[in-house]
Design a protein around this nucleic acid. Structure first.
Ligand code: FES
Ligand code: FES
Lengths: 146, 146
DNA sequence: ATAATCCCTATTGTATTAGTAGAGTATACC
DNA sequence: GGTATACTCTACTAATACAATAGGGATTAT
């Protein structure tokens, strides 16, 4: 798996929205500023995230973005897969792959399947609520500021 | 981590050479044919692998390529890192990274560090001898052919 | 000599990535 | 109703990486 800027930005944005879950909408301006994301790039990302059902938006004055579900209902893996596509290290890992030309090389495939499984085991078992909890528990809480 | 064609080809080629370890050199023609790799692309890859100290070559007639070390002395991770560069999913995972602008986002960094650790735990603990053993043990041995 | 082999650099076509640009639409508030 | 403040959408672009391809050159067994 490789995380692109777009994916990184998407996760940071959702995390920010998770921190403000239950409150009034957050403007793209604030989101962009806090995570240091080019605003026009973030625009596209938020559009994507909306289509993916991760965020909602309110237009007009006092508008902004909101998380569409509870932080506990969004797993890291979902967002990553939606934004980045398949996460496996190489295409032949997927179930319905035809197999390579030589059975001797397929031992490599098995290795990639392990790697894939290990990765999924992590990102599919972490929700944004878990991340929020981690932030709270950390000793960084002192420098908290919106 | 994402495996490119180049990396995939490199691993398959070293595995092939591992299977012929201790015998006479294997020609690029045979390597390319068995793994279905464009021969001119493989040329470059073998040049790289030579510079990396993974393979040796004999020029002229009856020349070819040989593994430079025992299969048990080459880990998957070494080859991957040499061919593909850093394997971490995102740059900020590396030790001496400055840290992002917001401590709230750094919980993500920790996730990537887990993913990275899990991946390294796999690829840095598998040698090409392990792969050879895996091939022997598998029931595919029947259709063995050089 | 010659055929088979490896050695090396340069170039190319395509796709992906990380933005930028610029127009449009909705809403709160006076 | 006008206007400022927000979100919406499509198109474009510069830079880079990827996956080869091309074309010569050097070495060695026979
Ligand atoms: S199927 Fe990918 S290496 Fe055999
Ligand atoms: S350092 Fe990468 S997310 Fe904070």
């Amino acid at each position: 798996m490789k995380i692109t800027y777009k994916g990184d930005y998407a996760l940071k944005t959702i995390l920010d929205l998770a921190r403000h879950y239950g409150n009034s909408p957050v403007t793209i301006h604030d989101l962009a500023k806090r995570a240091d994301i080019p605003i026009k790039f973030l625009e596209q990302i938020l559009l994507d995230l909306k289509r993916g059902g991760f965020v909602e938006s309110r237009r007009g004055k006092v508008g902004g973005y909101l998380l569409a579900k509870e932080p506990s209902g969004i797993k890291l893996g979902e967002v990553i897969r939606f934004i980045e596509g398949p996460i496996e290290p190489i295409a032949c890992v997927s179930k319905n792959y035809q197999g390579c030309n030589s059975i001797y090389n397929c031992v490599l495939r098995e290795v990639w399947q392990w790697v894939n499984k290990a990765t999924c085991g992590i990102i599919d078992n972490i929700t944004f609520e878990d991340l929020l909890k981690k932030i709270e528990d950390s000793d960084c809480t002192i420098s908290y500021q919106i």
